[in-house]
């Protein structure tokens, strides 16, 4: 290449570097929208993260209901189920108690405050 050719070519390159091609109208906005749409959700830590992990208020309502029902079944089981609370307290492995009256004397305070035995 001659110096003249080199200079001409470099002048072309310099102009190309100085004047980049103009982007179509709205292109940048479209690409930013793409970037935001594809972006992972921000990570949330602490109590907010825990709250979100368990599913928020709807999940908490269900959790409270399930806990209350479970607790009630535990302390006052329906007639078809063993009285687990009494077994645990008395250390017995047979839920059929021969002498309910004697049990009543020391388990009434602990098994649903005596309600289950009162009802039985």
């Amino acid at each position: 290449m001659t110096k003249r050719e080199t200079d001409t070519l470099e002048a072309h390159f310099e102009q190309a570097r100085a004047t980049p091609p103009q982007m179509p109208a709205g292109m940048m906005d479209r690409l930013i929208a793409d970037a935001l749409a594809a972006q992972p959700a921000p990570a949330i830590g602490g109590w907010r993260g825990f709250w979100r992990a368990i599913g928020g208020a709807p999940a908490l309502g269900g959790l409270i209901t399930a806990t209350a029902v479970g607790f009630w079944i535990g302390v006052a089981p329906p007639s078809g189920l063993p009285d687990v609370a009494t077994q645990i307290i008395t250390g017995g492995d047979d839920y059929i108690v021969a002498d309910a009256t004697s049990l009543d004397t020391y388990t009434s305070d602990l098994t649903a405050f005596g309600w289950d035995l009162d009802e039985g």
């Binding site: 091609p21 292109m27 940048m28 930013i32």
Partner: peptide, 27 residues
């Protein structure tokens, strides 16, 4: 920052990278 959900990083990266990539592709 983009991966951590920083919307400003998403915009900044797009604004910085797009002209270069578009210019190359156009040429």
């Amino acid at each position: 920052r983009y991966v951590q959900g920083d919307a400003a990083a998403a915009r900044l990266l797009t604004v910085q990278l797009t002209p270069r990539i578009f210019g190359h592709a156009f040429r």
